Computed example of a mutant assay.
Amino acid sequence: MKIMRRFAAVAFALMLVAGAACADTLTLNGTVEAGLTVPVYAPIGGTVDEVCVEKGMHVSAGDILFSYRTEKTYASGDGVVTGVFAKAGDDAEIVTEQYGADLYIEGTTIYSVSASTSKAYSSAETTIVHTGETVYLLCRTDAKRYGTGIITTVDGTSYTVHVTEGNFIIGDSVTIFRDSAYTDKLRLGRGSVSRVNPTAVTGTGAVVSVAVQDGDEVKRGDLLMETLSGTFEGYEMTGTSVTAEEEGVIVSTSADAGTTVTKGDIVVQIAPVSGMRVEAAITADDRQALKAGDKVIIELESDESISYEGTVRYITEMPEEDTEETTYKAVIDFKPDENVYFGMPVVVTTPEAAQE
């Protein structure tokens, strides 16, 4: 009988020891969650050309999130670029205020003649000139300076000739004829040679890119520069795209192609991979067994051979709502890798339990 009582006492003691050991260990079920979301703001106002991401899509640093539709400025005629003052990031209108234009083009027409029919041969035919008419020019002081031109504007007895061929000196006085033989009866009057000013090219908004540089030859219709409405105000941006700054998952987008955004609008929200954390439910009875700063082991439910070390950041003071049992939320930090994704289930254990 004594032996039986002694055996029962030993068994009870072993149960107490085992119970004490179990009290030192803890196992929790959790999921990988986004610890934070990072908004991506529109750096400048403008029209969205394309949104390249969707909710739930994984992006890497440098991936394009969305792009702007630019205003494109084209060459209005043939010529040579003689001055480029604007560069990417500039306010096009401020550059124009400083330099008169964002860039200049020196056209193929260098000289112009301001003329009048007051010195034309006295006939009905020679005192009337026509826009688009080809005429022939002869310097009154040096017959070696001659050329050809086209009448571009007519205002009563005054008209303008753009010189298409020939070399003159600015200020030359020329006689204008209807034929290359300079027949006096076909004299249309006289004029003075002046320099045709380079064409000023201007834009509005922020300069995204300039497609030409000094000395480039351009044809009518060639792209000169691209701009966006608004100003960058110090924001360093080249091209028309906004990219992700770090790896993450798209939480939401709030713009579509063709919509207009203003500077500071949130266009995309990203959950960075670097912000991943584990959230696990812990009962009121177990809450005292875990505290902020404790080390834990995180195992993937899908592959128990993969585990990570975690650190408890905090445990909520208020219980979770809409749960049958009173539970609290434990938030655990860890360093994820390519095996981890948002929403995946994990098992959290204390180091003692992991050694069992």
Rank of each mutant, 00 (worst) to 15 (best):
D285P: 02
C52G: 00
F12K: 08
T240V: 11
Y136V: 01
E304I: 00
G132P: 13
R287H: 09
A34N: 13
E165V: 01
D24M: 14
K263E: 10
T131N: 10
L137F: 09
L138P: 02
G83L: 07
R287K: 15
E125T: 11
G62M: 08
V208K: 03
A281W: 02
S305L: 10
A120M: 05
G56Q: 06
I282V: 14
L224S: 02
G310I: 00
A181H: 13
T227K: 03
D24E: 15
D256P: 00
V135H: 12
I169C: 10
I306K: 15
Y121A: 11
A281E: 14
I176Q: 05
A115M: 04
I151W: 11
A257G: 14
T31Y: 13
K119P: 00
E356H: 09
G77N: 08
T227R: 06
T70F: 08
V218Y: 13
V17H: 10
D49R: 07
A280F: 09
G221R: 11
E93P: 00
S76V: 13
G239V: 08
E245G: 13
P351Y: 08
V95H: 01
S254H: 13
E299D: 05
P43W: 07
V347D: 03
S229A: 14
M225H: 03
I44P: 01
K291D: 08
S180M: 11
F168G: 07
I306G: 07
R6G: 02
L26W: 10
G45S: 15
T31Q: 11
G132I: 07
K335Q: 09
A115I: 01
E33Y: 04
G310A: 07
M318G: 01
D337T: 01
V84H: 07
A115N: 02
R287P: 03
T231W: 04
A21G: 06
D256V: 09
K2M: 12
T253G: 09
C52D: 10
